[in-house]
Design a protein around this nucleic acid. Sequence first.
DNA 1: ATACCATATCGCCATTTAGCAATAGTCCCA
DNA 2: TGGGACTATTGCTAAATGGCGATATGGTAT
Lengths: 109, 109
Amino acid sequence: MSLPDRPHLEKVTKLFGVLAEPTRLAILQALKEAPMPVKDLVETLHAKQANVSKQLGILHDAGLVERKREGTLTVYSLRETMIFDLCKLVCDKLRRDAEEQLAALERMP
Amino acid sequence: MSLPDRPHLEKVTKLFGVLAEPTRLAILQALKEAPMPVKDLVETLHAKQANVSKQLGILHDAGLVERKREGTLTVYSLRETMIFDLCKLVCDKLRRDAEEQLAALERMP
DNA sequence: ATACCATATCGCCATTTAGCAATAGTCCCA
DNA sequence: TGGGACTATTGCTAAATGGCGATATGGTAT
């Protein structure tokens, strides 16, 4: 029963898809430090405003991020910290793979 | 220091990308029950052989799956159970969202 | 050798999408 | 009431990719 029918499966893959983009992950990482308006993200990530806005929209639609207007600014903040649990699992796996590959290299000189 | 430089970021997103596809997730789910040759996956998933082979290749390149030839068969098996930890986190989030949405509906009849 | 099954790969097409420049909308202040 | 800063949207292009049929490759038995 772990991963059920196709419709549900697609919801899951959709969320993975949202995380499958460097700019979006970078945004989440930046917001982890503190809530931020768009312009600060633009500066922090050295990205174009149009693109940051678009990616923020996608993150917001996915329910990963919250919007709050403050005057002329739109301040975004994290809505899901589970993202970083996901990232940690992935990073651990990547590290395991790297260590394994290193060991394989040392085994045949 | 949580999520570092851009190159590392892209490795992480690449793995998320591998999981951002219903057919691939379905394959992983099927392999969770037991190792299987391609033809069984084709039958189980009601998918085309060419596509299953292709997706298996991607899963293999990502180090999520193992290949072992047995005569004329190629038996695939899981190499990473951490996938299902990822899926569980995502499913929990989806369920939380759904409950929240339901509560919001009941709040205004 | 031959026929056959299982798997992998190739060429192709349709769809999706990140990024960009330009523009529209929104809010504040002088 | 303008002007300016901030943000969202639109139209576009180039690249990536899932899926398909057809074909190549590899392994087995007769």
